[in-house]
Computed example of a mutant assay.
Amino acid sequence: MLVSASIKGKNLTFDYYYNKETQMLFYKNEQITLSKQESQLFHICYLSKGSFVPMHTIEYYIWGEEYVNDSTKRGLIYRLKKKLNHTIFEYLGGFGCKVDGL
Score class of each variant (00 low, 15 high):
41 L>V: 05
31 Q>H: 08
8 K>Q: 15
28 K>T: 07
91 Y>W: 11
69 N>C: 11
8 K>I: 13
12 L>F: 13
28 K>Y: 04
23 Q>L: 04
22 T>H: 11
1 M>R: 10
82 K>R: 14
2 L>D: 11
32 I>S: 07
41 L>E: 00
78 Y>I: 06
3 V>Y: 12
84 L>K: 01
70 D>P: 07
8 K>C: 12
45 C>A: 15
23 Q>P: 01
29 N>D: 15
44 I>S: 00
71 S>K: 15
42 F>E: 03
63 W>A: 06
37 Q>A: 07
11 N>H: 08
94 G>M: 11
57 T>Y: 08
27 Y>S: 13
88 I>G: 03
68 V>T: 13
45 C>G: 04
53 V>L: 08
82 K>E: 09
27 Y>P: 03
47 L>E: 06
90 E>K: 15
99 V>M: 02
86 H>A: 10
38 E>G: 01
11 N>M: 13
37 Q>C: 07
21 E>A: 10
79 R>F: 04
15 D>H: 11
67 Y>V: 10
93 G>K: 12
75 G>P: 01
44 I>N: 02
54 P>M: 05
101 G>T: 12
83 K>S: 03
92 L>H: 15
77 I>H: 02
79 R>Q: 08
23 Q>A: 09
32 I>W: 04
24 M>Y: 08
69 N>V: 07
10 K>M: 15
42 F>R: 04
46 Y>K: 03
10 K>A: 15
15 D>Y: 12
64 G>C: 05
40 Q>T: 04
1 M>P: 03
80 L>R: 00
23 Q>F: 05
51 S>L: 12
22 T>P: 03
25 L>M: 05
63 W>P: 07
95 F>L: 12
74 R>N: 02
72 T>W: 00
47 L>N: 03
33 T>W: 06
53 V>G: 01
77 I>Y: 00
73 K>L: 06
44 I>V: 09
70 D>H: 14
51 S>Y: 13
42 F>D: 01
82 K>V: 05
86 H>I: 08
75 G>K: 10
54 P>K: 09
83 K>E: 01
65 E>M: 12
16 Y>R: 00
19 N>A: 07
96 G>M: 04
97 C>H: 00
4 S>T: 12
91 Y>S: 11
44 I>M: 03
92 L>V: 09
26 F>L: 08
28 K>H: 07
102 L>N: 03
11 N>A: 10
3 V>C: 10
45 C>P: 00
25 L>R: 01
22 T>D: 09
15 D>L: 15
36 K>E: 11
33 T>E: 14
75 G>T: 09
100 D>L: 02
2 L>T: 13
23 Q>C: 07
12 L>M: 11
53 V>Y: 05
91 Y>C: 04
44 I>Y: 00
62 I>L: 09
70 D>A: 13
20 K>R: 08
74 R>D: 02
34 L>M: 09
58 I>F: 10
46 Y>H: 11
30 E>D: 14
93 G>A: 12
39 S>E: 08
87 T>I: 15
1 M>E: 11
21 E>C: 05
7 I>L: 14
19 N>T: 07
20 K>S: 04
38 E>V: 04
51 S>G: 08
